[in-house]
C-alpha cells in the first residue's frame, strides 16, 4: 500500500525519512498535497505493508493512504 505522512515540522519529515531508510522502506519526499494542507510543507510518500511503527512517531501530523486521487485519513495527531 502507498501512504503519505505529513509532519508538524520539516525536521520531523527528515527524521522520519531517515528512519524509513534505516528500515529499508522505499520512500520519497514530496510537497504536501494542497488538499491536505495550505501550509508549504514536505511530506513523505512511502510503500509499506505494516504501518504500526507510525503510531509511535511524535513527528507525524497525519497519516493517509493514497486512494486514487484522494487521501484517506488513517489518523491525525493534534
Amino acid at each position: 500500500m502507498e501512504y503519505i505522512a505529513t509532519f508538524f515540522t520539516h525536521f520531523g519529515a527528515n527524521q522520519f525519512g531517515r528512519s524509513l531508510k534505516n528500515m529499508g522502506v522505499k520512500y520519497r519526499m514530496m510537497p504536501v498535497p494542497r488538499k491536505l494542507s495550505s501550509s508549504c510543507g514536505t511530506c513523505v510518500r512511502f510503500y509499506c505493508n505494516n504501518i504500526e511503527f507510525c503510531n509511535n512517531s511524535e513527528d507525524i501530523e497525519g497519516l493517509y493512504i493514497i486512494n486514487g486521487n484522494d487521501y484517506d485519513v488513517i489518523f491525525i495527531n493534534k
Binding site: F8, T9, H10, F11, S38, S39, C40, G41, T42
Partner: peptide
C-alpha cells in the same frame, strides 16, 4: 522564510526552524 507554516506571518516556535 523557513519553508514551514508558510500560511502564517508568525515565525514558528518549533525547532530548529
Amino acid at each position: 522564510g523557513t519553508g514551514s507554516v508558510s500560511h502564517t506571518i508568525e515565525t514558528p516556535e518549533f525547532m530548529p526552524d
